[in-house]
Write a protein that binds this DNA or RNA. Structure first.
Lengths: 126, 126
DNA sequence: ATGTTTGCAAACGCTTTGCAACGTG
DNA sequence: CACGTTGCAAAGCGTTTGCAAACAT
């Protein structure tokens, strides 16, 4: 059973795929309501879960909160400014190596990882 | 103003320092209540925050939940089994390098990071 | 004695659920 | 037409807060 295409699902997918930002449920709701879309909170939560389940969007935990992002890029990780909250993405070839190396050393089979580096961005190093 | 030593604080510190486990607020509360300690929920939350603030304990986000752990060891990261939930710790010298390397490349000053590798532990690879 | 910490219960914020109406395939 | 999806409002859950009593220093 493929997932049905509804206006709400399209709208959410469009918002998330159309930016490189990191969206929590509330921001998605606000963005939709401000653009005139009729949508309820419950639908936002349910839809985000459905879309993630279908790997149409990805998610990261940022500041103790689940955020969704578009998934069209290669696997990447995040730099987070603890002052202003801005986020930069980066890729480092060695992380994949490290992931399987460490997993193997402990008898694990690795599936994925999440790495967040916290610090101060350029503008916040006053 | 040094933090005051109360029986509740001692008890929580003892529990966390006495094991290498990862404790969320609820587990701490249960462990204390089962050992006969009189303590309330609010105190557990407040105390964990105080102890972390004082860097007497550390914390990690595991499965979308804040967990506390003892802080006497060197900086380490975590392997998490997505099946049974067991956790292994590991250290890898290159992670620190990677952290400052990536930070520098984006104009950040890095403070710390959190890395969690998810996969299947030995016992769950049926 | 003073100011901090505690427990309780109420308040909170975010997320999930039940259900009837709606809309997609 | 059938059944998945939606909105609403209520319920749920973990966490935080206000306050008077208890306690460490």
């Amino acid at each position: 059973m493929p997932i049905r295409l509804t206006s709400q699902r399209t709208a959410i997918l469009t918002i998330i795929n159309g930016s490189s930002a990191h969206w929590d449920a509330e921001s998605v709701l606000q963005a939709l309501q401000q653009s005139g879309q009729r949508i309820g909170v419950a639908t936002v939560y349910r839809t985000l879960a459905v879309l993630e389940e279908a790997t149409l969007i990805g998610s990261v935990f940022i500041n103790e909160r689940k955020c969704y992002e578009r998934i069209d890029k290669q696997q990447h990780d995040h730099l987070l400014c603890s002052q202003c909250g801005c986020i930069e993405e980066f890729c480092h070839p060695y992380i994949a190596v490290l992931q399987s190396e460490m997993a193997q050393a402990h008898g694990f089979v690795a599936h994925n990882h999440s790495l967040i580096i916290r610090g101060l961005c350029r503008d916040c190093q006053s």
